[in-house]
Amino acid sequence: MLLPMPLLRMREATFGTGEACAGPVTLDVERGERAALHVSSAREAAIVAAMAAAVVKASSGCVLIADYDPHVQSVACKRVAALVPHEPFTLNDDEFARYIEYRAELWKLEPRRARAYAAELRRQLADMHEALAYPLIGALIGMPKLLVLDRPQPVYAQQVLAAAGECAVLSTHDDAAAARVFAPKALHFLKAVES
């Protein structure tokens, strides 16, 4: 009998250009799991998060998102994984409504349902600063199976993990303490292999 593949599998995944490099990273994230990855710098955390969400493609090594390879099946990967960038969005209410509608169109969601779900998430994340809540809400309305957070604020960890529900969560951090807040179990605390 074949064992089910993890939702996210990274094997010696590296990214390298002239200026930016990250990895190698080796990890598995199962369905519904909470994992946090501590890396050495903010830049590396951003790159690893983007690799895990198929926003950038690994230069070497292997990344599989629900069995899909981002190099050839990036569209399928992006339907499974959603990236929450570190940078907050400074949007007013009207711009946020437009943002949700735009996301709904790009993900081919039913706009009314997306708006209702966004409003529900906004209520759920009422204690969270709106500039930080907006990217998270935008990512969650697409109903991803894997939520990838780039350096989320540890102070909002409970709200973020509650909003994610049954969705698997991988967060990348440049601070070990913040990583522990998002994945307190030692099993889920992963460290990138030093190159």
Partner: peptide, 11 residues
């Protein structure tokens, strides 16, 4: 940035 982020991660 919010449009860029949306488009880059869109399927």
């Amino acid at each position: 940035p919010h449009l860029d982020s949306c488009e880059q991660s869109a399927p």
